[in-house]
Simulated assay, not measured.
Amino acid sequence: MKECLPKQRIKTKLRLFFYLSALYAPTVPSPGPMVPPASMFGNVPGYEDTLAGGGGGYLPPPMPLHPNRDPEPAPVPQDWNIPSITEDVARERFIMYASGKCCYNNAPAKDGVITNMQAFNTYRYRLETFTESRSTEWATKPYEGELADFYTQTAPRPWEIPVTGPSLFQNHEENIKVPYTSSNKVFVCLFESQRVIFYCGCIPVCWVCNGSGKQGGDSPCNQCNQRGRENCSKCHGNGTKECETCKGKQQLLTYINLKVEWKNNVEDYVVEQNSGLEVDDLSDVTGKTLFKNAQYMLYPVYGFPDPSLSQASDRLVREHQAKYSQNSRILQQQQTIELIPITKVTYKWKGGIHVYYIYGNEHQVKAPDYPATCCCSIM
């Protein structure tokens, strides 16, 4: 056999050493993306306060969007009632409800005798405050030849950057690279100039031959091609993988990232109706819109027949305007009043008295004490 040259022999020993280290070393989690040191980030005039402590906090807007516009009271309708449903509709919806339940016998819905129908007018007040918030933080990405414009001009302040928002009352988020804040930096990764990480720690032993390279005696193992180990999905058997931070570029582009968030902040108040139906059940249905008013800043609803709704409107409007004007800009507010119809139906079946509810524009049904159910199981 031809003897290896000393240099080749050293390489062979090194390969064997690293192979055995990977094969018998305990499994460790592979290193995640490295965090660039703080020295990579420069000082940007005008951003000293906003980036203090790493950034990420919401920045107060410089001034209201419409500082001279005062809210105006809106006309409130006088008719707050709508007709209740008919007995035919109540029976039809009840039969559909029972037929859709696999464990319900629909006999009570079909044969039950309706003895009473009581309508409840339930009002839901909803306040929506549409806001825009802005925050800044340092960000990095692998450098791919982009223009580094740091200090070429004065960077605009966060609220000076023009951004096109979504439609009113729609949640949305944008991330924007602040102009004149980007620079490219040499990035030193872990191990050999950090282009790659040596030994990813995920080289598994072949499950067929258990690391021997042979299968069924002296037959070569086809699963691992006699190597005794399988390829790692991250390093493909090389024991190395690309740096997750710089993606092998060895340079990073650093810049200030502006995060703009539009959010529709919604709160509801439902007038207590004493029908026996839980208020939470009403969250899935709609009602008839009786009143809607949208302005930059709202005036509470006054003169409602139920004083609790007027009080809730006054409280919520004040709370929203105080809360959301601190670290965000209020773009628009909207308040609506819906009449959610609820009909409590009492019926008699086999000598017993029972109740079900039909509510919302959708005529949704709830029967908390349905008298003919069974337990079903799938074999």
Score class of each variant (00 low, 15 high):
residue 4 C to G: 00
residue 6 P to C: 06
residue 8 Q to G: 13
residue 9 R to H: 11
residue 15 R to C: 06
residue 20 L to A: 11
residue 21 S to K: 12
residue 21 S to V: 01
residue 22 A to G: 15
residue 31 P to R: 00
residue 34 M to E: 13
residue 37 P to V: 01
residue 37 P to H: 01
residue 39 S to A: 02
residue 65 L to E: 11
residue 70 D to Y: 10
residue 80 W to H: 10
residue 84 S to T: 14
residue 89 V to K: 11
residue 91 R to L: 04
residue 97 Y to V: 00
residue 98 A to Q: 02
residue 99 S to P: 04
residue 102 C to F: 11
residue 106 N to M: 01
residue 111 D to H: 08
residue 117 M to V: 12
residue 118 Q to C: 05
residue 129 T to W: 07
residue 129 T to F: 04
residue 133 S to Y: 05
residue 138 W to H: 07
residue 142 P to G: 04
residue 143 Y to D: 11
residue 148 A to I: 01
residue 148 A to G: 11
residue 154 T to H: 11
residue 162 P to W: 12
residue 164 T to Q: 15
residue 167 S to W: 01
residue 178 V to Q: 05
residue 182 S to A: 13
residue 188 V to I: 15
residue 206 C to L: 08
residue 211 G to F: 14
residue 213 G to M: 09
residue 228 G to Y: 11
residue 231 N to C: 05
residue 231 N to M: 02
residue 238 N to M: 14
residue 241 K to E: 15
residue 247 K to L: 14
residue 272 E to M: 02
residue 275 S to R: 05
residue 282 L to H: 00
residue 289 T to W: 01
residue 289 T to Y: 02
residue 293 N to M: 02
residue 301 V to Y: 08
residue 302 Y to S: 10
residue 303 G to E: 10
residue 308 S to L: 13
residue 309 L to V: 04
residue 311 Q to K: 14
residue 316 L to F: 12
residue 326 Q to D: 10
residue 331 L to W: 04
residue 335 Q to G: 08
residue 337 I to H: 06
residue 355 V to E: 10
residue 370 Y to M: 02
residue 371 P to K: 05
residue 374 C to I: 08
residue 376 C to I: 07
residue 379 M to H: 11
